[in-house]
């Protein structure tokens, strides 16, 4: 369709304004991470980057600040990475095998198990905070990676996604495998797993972000500063968010915290979009 030339620039203008607003807080944060705290606190701060970036990041990574009990952001990043990977890999692993069981076998209680998993959609951690904490505490998992990750790796969403995909694998493919002599585990390894690659990639992106960004759960199950995840760490560093806050360090830490998930979204955009559209909770 032909459009009048005069309005060709309108979409670009609107998008650029939108992007400017969306990106503004991130830009200011990045700039602040290159200034000193006094430059931020006593002034209108500059909107152009300063020269103090390296020292802020080094300090953040190695020692954090006074409110993090000397635990550096490096340690927090490591904790967060471990937890995010454990959640993403764990969720995918247990979901894909349980979906495989529900789809490729016929056994008593099949639908009951399916519903048991499906209904967990209705039980987000936010509605069972205290008793879930009690269970984790009872198991001695407070301040452990297992305590941070395991309670979050049961996922109806991922199971549903895999089930949906498995149902599209033609019956004849299963029969061909049977004639070829492949048993269920062989079929899983040689056919189902390779065919699920794109779904796994898409889920991985979404779940890694999910795991990285956890807040309420780590807040509950970690007391030890050594076990802090970075998102919680920032909250601790922030204090009251007033003039006493070491803003330059907080801002450097914030950049470090949002960089990995944002990088994944940008670099793996195709998988991210697929994952988001197909899981949609």
């Amino acid at each position: 369709m032909r459009r009048a030339r005069t309005i060709d620039w309108v979409p670009h203008a609107v998008l650029l304004i939108g992007i400017a607003i969306i990106a503004f807080p991130v830009y200011v944060t990045v700039v602040a991470s290159t200034l000193t705290t006094p430059e931020i606190v006593y002034g209108p701060m500059s909107l152009l980057p300063g020269p103090h970036g390296p020292e802020n990041y080094v300090q953040a990574l190695s020692e954090g600040n006074a409110k993090t009990s000397g635990v550096g952001v490096g340690r927090m990043l490591l904790n967060t990475l471990v937890v995010a990977l454990a959640i993403a890999v764990g969720k995918i692993a247990i979901s894909i095998i349980s979906a495989y069981a529900v789809v490729f076998f016929n056994f008593p209680g099949r639908m009951a198990f399916f519903w048991l998993i499906f209904l967990t959609l209705m039980l987000p951690v936010e509605v069972r905070i205290v008793p879930t904490y009690a269970v984790v505490a009872g198991l001695g998992l407070v301040d452990t990676y297992a305590g941070l990750a395991v309670p979050l790796i049961a996922s109806a969403t991922a199971t549903l996604l895999f089930r949906q995909f498995f149902l599209t694998i033609p019956d004849e493919m299963v029969e061909a495998a049977k004639v070829d002599g492949a048993g269920p585990m062989r079929f899983f390894k040689d056919v189902v797993l390779p065919l699920s690659r794109t779904n796994i990639a898409a889920l991985f992106v979404i779940l890694f972000i999910y795991g990285w960004n956890q807040y309420l759960w780590p807040l509950l199950v970690t007391n030890d500063a050594e076990m802090t995840t970075i998102v919680i760490g920032i909250r601790r560093m922030l204090g009251n968010g007033d003039a006493q806050t070491e803003w330059s360090i907080v801002m450097a830490t914030t950049v470090l915290a949002l960089l990995p998930p944002v990088a994944i979204v940008i670099l793996m955009q195709r998988w991210f979009v697929k994952g988001l559209v197909e899981t949609e909770k």
Binding site: P170, E175, G181
Partner: peptide, 15 residues
Amino acid sequence: EPKDRDIAMVFQNYA
């Protein structure tokens, strides 16, 4: 089992 029958099969949609 199919695999032990020493047969081979050509499927309608080839599989």
